[in-house]
Computed example of a mutant assay.
Amino acid sequence: MSVASSVAPASAAASAPVPVPPPELAQIPVSLLVDIGSGQVLVQRRPDVPFLPASVTKVMTAYVAFEEIGAGRLSLDRRFNERPETEKEWFAKGTNMYLTRKDWPTTRDLLHGIMTASANDASIVLGEGYAGSVPQWTAKMNDAARRLGMTGSHYNTPNGWMDDGHTYVTASDLVRLADAMITRYPSLYREFSGQKHWFWRDVAMRSHDPTVGVVPGADGIKTGYTREAGYNFLGTAERDGRRLVMVLAGSPKPKVRDNVARALLEWGFSAWQARHLFDQGQTIARAQVQDGNAQSVPLVANREVHATLPTGGHQKITLAVRYKGPLQAPIRKGDQVAELEINVAGLAPGRVPLYAGRDVAKGGALDRLIAGAIHLVS
């Protein structure tokens, strides 16, 4: 079932042409740029082809930790002690915090090590220390991927170390992951993403993020590299309420990746413009509910929603709210129950998730009687 509406064009002026992306983007085998306020794809190349993520894997390790922190099961102040066999295997192996059994890093220390320093040992210590083993931790990673709809991805390691291709992702899936990390855990995201330096034992560890401090509004997220994977980047920036999320994968050189990342974000903000549609939390539509103590539930977005148009463009915008309905009670406030489809003439549609704006409990006999009467009248 769907509820549709339309937004008239801003004026009768001719539509602007679809912007041409930076030419240097052709050097990157996999690329994707999405405006998450509209869900619209601004540029894409092989967005659903699996690739080796290398250290971009660590974004899912951080996300699983965010979930556990958000649920109250993991404290940022909890201390971890490295296992002897873990120290033997992972000390100074790739990028590292150089943890030893004498250290008792907190969750906060490990997350800074993972997200800023890209520490391989920190990822293992967190995963083993919390879940009991690496396989039990990666099971949590894959469960989170499944719940996020990351259908083209699989995790076999917490840190992206080479594993004969058992860990793989797609660009489309990484955008889903970044979106969830930013919108569901904003305070944790701000604390652990986009930090250029972090100190562990008075030693400065440096991020390789090519955009933070260079591109206005850039605040993360993670680079990655192995010989097999090439140079990868999951990046994002926000300006004036617009957030772009970008994936670049398989770059032959770090300089190519870094230059393209900067150019692509700047192009996304300059060549495209947002037309505001709804505020965060504003009721966008109502969905019918079956067997509940209310006949409908308000649908809201967890972000500011806009349509994305070429700069100077005035294309017609059509909206459609889509859900499988009627929805079945009980429904909890915050459950994702629908999508807003945003259609800009001449462009591929974008989709933004919609959430229940209130609880709807299971209805009693009187509620069912009232609903039946309303149905007969309608």
Rank of each mutant, 00 (worst) to 15 (best):
R184M: 09
G224S: 05
P252V: 02
G213P: 07
A180F: 02
T223R: 05
G217L: 03
M205V: 05
F233G: 04
L264S: 06
V212P: 03
P216C: 03
T211S: 03
L177Q: 08
A263I: 07
L188F: 06
R201H: 05
F192M: 09
A178I: 10
F199D: 02
R243S: 10
K196V: 11
L244M: 00
P210D: 06
S187T: 13
T236H: 03
P186Q: 06
G230E: 00
L244G: 05
E191W: 11
D202M: 05
L177T: 11
E228D: 04
G224T: 08
A249N: 10
V245I: 10
L244V: 05
L188R: 08
S187W: 03
K253E: 15
L177F: 01
I221K: 01
T223V: 08
R239D: 10
G230Y: 10
G217S: 08
E191F: 08
A249G: 09
L264C: 09
A229F: 01
V203H: 00
P186L: 02
V212Q: 07
Y225A: 14
L234G: 15
M246G: 09
P186D: 06
M246I: 14
T211V: 15
V245D: 10
W198Y: 04
A178V: 00
H197N: 01
V215D: 11
M181A: 15
R257L: 08
R190E: 15
R257S: 05
E191R: 07
D219K: 04
R206Q: 14
L248K: 02
G230H: 03
H208L: 06
Y225V: 12
G250S: 02
A178Y: 06
G241C: 13
I182V: 14
S193P: 11
D179V: 07
N232M: 01
K255G: 15
D209H: 00
D240K: 15
G230N: 04
W198A: 07
V245T: 09
D202A: 09
F233W: 09
T236W: 07
P186C: 06
A237Q: 00
P254C: 15
R242Q: 08
V245S: 12
Y225P: 03
L244S: 06
V203G: 10
V203K: 02
F233T: 05
K253M: 13
F199W: 14
A249S: 11
S187G: 12
V214T: 09
T211P: 06
L177G: 14
A218I: 00
M181L: 13
D209V: 04
T183D: 14
H197C: 03
V256C: 11
N259K: 13
Y231Q: 13
K253C: 08
S251L: 05
V256L: 13
V215P: 11
R176L: 15
K255L: 14
G250Y: 09
A261F: 12
A180W: 00
K222E: 09
S251C: 06
E191D: 11
P210A: 02
S193I: 03
W198G: 04
R176N: 14
D209K: 00
T211W: 14
F199A: 04
F233C: 04
Y185A: 02
R239C: 10
K253V: 07
G220S: 04
D179W: 15
A263K: 06
R243M: 05
A204F: 13
A261L: 13
V260M: 11
I221T: 13
R262A: 15
L248W: 06
